[in-house]
Amino acid sequence: MNTKQTNEMQIEFDSKSENEGFARVAVAAFLTQLNPTVEEVADVKTAVSEAVTNSIIHGYEKKRGKIFIRCIMQEDEIVVSISDKGKGIADIKKAMEPLFTTKPELERSGMGFAFMEAFMDQVDVISEVGIGTTVTMKKKIENSSTFRVSGDELNG
């Protein structure tokens, strides 16, 4: 018998920079079910922003494509996967080094993965050139009251 409570959502949206804010709020709104602090929300938002921006700028190089986010909550942990079907990363280890960038003209160059690793507990990257990239991040919420008892209070 599996007594673990889980909850799951998926989002799919166009790779436009206007959607970065939407993606980050959607994940943050879902995360509220674990009853995080404002800081924990900000951490997850920052990490999601960086990953989504990477898919838009590096994955699709500003051409239109689809970005996919999958969120799973299990007990006091959130797992967020951000995927694109863009150009992929040849050397993942190098890409994740702080300050490494293939687009030095951008702001905060080369710090995206460093931010994700700083703000989340775990960051894993799977990528194949010509196929796409998936970044999976995990974070435990400290004072998590796990799931809300019921949604009925929503109508209150």
Partner: peptide, 23 residues
């Protein structure tokens, strides 16, 4: 208020500044 609506309000004023603090 609902937790979700709080998150949306915070987004509107932009609170993604914990970055600089930590890094």
């Amino acid at each position: 208020m609902e937790r979700e609506d709080i998150v949306m309000a915070l987004e509107a004023v932009g609170e993604v500044e914990s970055l600089q603090k930590t890094i």
